[in-house]
Nucleic acid binder design. Structure first.
Length: 527
RNA sequence: GAGGCCGUAGCUCAGCUGGUAGAGCAACAGACUUUUAAUCUGUGGGUCCUGGGUUCGAUCCCCAGCGGCCUCACCA
């Protein structure tokens, strides 16, 4: 989209729409800068200090008019012109700092100082002092325009509240709403900490294909795309699992990947079509190893967050989420799938007759002809999962019915149970782990059974023969773990919508489906 | 995909049983050398999401469409 005269909903209107007068006023002011010999779109600035660093230069001994010199740059968020003195608050991604522009100190540049307006990006240098009310202030002796803003910024006190504009024009959200900037800075720190955590445990980070001829490793509908030169339909991956396991076969004993998966499913407060997963595999480990790893990682991250938000480390280990508190103190709660099932469904999950009766009473169609474990899974979702939302601590649910986990090793001495856990926090599935299946014959059989049970419209899944070949070459016994990064961030920064922790969540384009369809018909290549 | 709620000035929001739209901030003109969402005086600014319908008359009622949020379904 080109420069428009306004934000948001009207931006699809073209030149027939009259221009926003504020846009014209700003264009006129841009011309004044040019007439003053200033390029309103500046160049590289050296020797800059962050707003936070500049503020930290100020101490109890600092005199009013300041002593240490600082040079800062940022967006003008507040501007109070009181005649021969202008107070400006600029913001950068470390926070805000006040600038004092006094006519007596600026002299020749005073005319230009009066040209500055809200939203402009500017730099200032001067001494760090304070006002008589104690506000830390850079008393500027030099300044300049770094970039002219032609659009007026959102309201200075309320920020940008319109959720649609916040997601579609995230750049506005980021500079107008400091809380939103904070979310994404914290997100970056969380991901960085995960990498450090895993590197310390001798994992290496890898990248595996996002475009796959066979989309495997999870039960989900994939997106379809096409490679022109090979004239080949490809799927966007729904999981990196089958590739990461190939690396175990190759001898990479501890691998992880933090990257996007794509699932062609619905969108809601916990689901975005593209989402970020951390997936890892550790040779010679198992479910218990994954549980220890997950608990350490999540508890550490929660602890870091508590320290960041000013709570003493080692105290009450709780973080707010929505209208409640989640307590991340170790050890997390552990509960067996079978026990939860019995508690909330009311029968033993191994009791075929009782399960069937319960399912029929529930109104599940064709219950009698359905796989027993699938029925168990349905009843679990209906009764036990909602109960998990009431826990105020993270809960490991472990030992799943084998029929629900085709890529998982069966429990020693109990082939009906798969060595799998899911970690639930505030009712959300946050992590998922397994003792991996490394027997190629069993793997092939479970794949086949899974494919046979698939509905026609879902059967984009195919047998991944090369993966079976890989297992035949020998994969070490291993533990595998997946953690939903977006959801982890949601929990740690207290946002109940996944769109608040994804910079650019998927939005229907303006103009609706018609435009999307037109684009579909357009050739995708110039060649 | 289904249901509920929503779309009003650049931004944040009011707008009664239907009578032709308001505030704050922002903008424009002016005053002001320690403000803190600065203050004070004055001025301008609207396709009330779009298109139909009902009505003497629609921001308001009805229908359809577009977009958003929430709940549900599929999924993690």
């Amino acid at each position: 989209m080109r420069h428009g005269p306004t934000y948001g909903r009207c931006m699809h209107d073209n030149e027939t729409h009259h221009e926003n007068p504020q846009y014209r006023d700003r264009l006129a002011r841009l011309e004044k800068w040019r007439q003053a010999g200033v390029d309103p779109y500046g160049r590289r600035l050296d020797g800059l200090m962050s707003a936070a660093a500049a503020r930290n230069l100020h101490t109890a001994e600092t005199p009013h008019d300041g002593s240490p010199q600082a040079r800062v740059a940022g967006r003008i968020l507040l501007l109070r012109d009181i005649g021969k003195l202008i107070f400006i608050s600029i913001g950068d991604w470390t926070g805000k700092i006040q600038i004092g522009l006094a006519k007596q100190h600026i002299a020749a540049g005073w005319e230009q100082a009066k040209l500055l307006e809200l939203g402009d990006i500017a730099w200032f240098s001067g001494k760090v002092g304070h006002t008589k009310t104690g506000e830390v202030t850079i008393w500027a002796d030099a300044f300049g325009l770094a970039a002219k803003a032609l659009l007026p910024p959102p309201e200075k006190f309320h920020g940008l509240a319109d959720t649609e504009l916040r997601y579609r024009q995230r750049y506005l959200d980021l500079f107008a709403n400091p809380d939103s900037m904070e979310v994404f800075l914290v997100r970056s720190h969380i991901v960085q900490h995960i990498r450090t955590f895993l590197h310390e445990r001798q994992f290496i980070e890898v990248e595996t294909p996002m475009m796959q001829a066979v989309a495997g490793g999870a039960a989900a509908r994939p997106f379809v795309t096409h490679h022109n030169a090979l004239d080949l339909n490809l799927f966007m991956r729904i999981s990196p699992e089958l590739y990461l396991k190939r690396l175990l076969v190759g001898g990479m004993e501890r691998v992880f990947e933090i990257n996007r998966n794509f699932r062609n499913e619905g969108i809601d407060t916990r689901h975005n079509p593209e989402f970020t997963m951390m997936e890892l595999y550790q040779a010679y480990s198992d479910l218990a190893g994954m549980m220890e790893l997950t608990e350490s990682l999540v508890a550490e991250l929660a602890d870091k967050r508590m320290v960041q938000s000013g709570k003493p480390a080692g105290g009450e280990a709780a973080l707010p989420y929505g209208d409640r508190m989640i307590n991340y103190a170790r050890p997390f709660e552990r509960v067996e799938y079978r026990e939860l099932f019995a508690r909330h469904v009311g029968t033993d999950m191994g009791d075929r007759a009782a399960v069937l009766a319960r399912a029929t009473a529930q109104g599940i169609e064709n219950a009698a002809s359905m796989d027993h474990d699938v029925l168990v899974g349905l009843l679990f979702e209906q009764h036990a999962e909602p109960a998990l939302a009431t826990y105020d601590r993270p809960v490991f649910v472990y030992d799943y019915p084998a029929g629900l986990c085709p890529l998982t090793r069966r429990k020693a001495g109990n082939p009906a149970i798969a060595e799998r856990f899911e970690l639930y926090v505030a009712g959300m599935e946050l992590a998922n782990a397994y003792t991996e299946l490394n027997d190629p014959a069993v793997q092939e059989a479970t794949f086949s059974a899974q494919l046979a049970g698939q509905k026609a419209e879902d059967s984009m899944a195919k047998m991944d023969h090369d993966f079976i070949t890989a297992l035949q070459a020998g994969m070490p016994p291993a533990g595998g773990l997946g953690v939903g990064i977006d959801r982890l961030v949601m929990l740690l920064v207290n946002r109940t919508s996944i769109r608040d922790v994804i910079l650019f969540p998927l939005m229907r384009p303006h103009g609706g489906r018609a435009i999307a369809t037109e684009q579909e018909d357009t050739p995708t290549s110039m060649a």
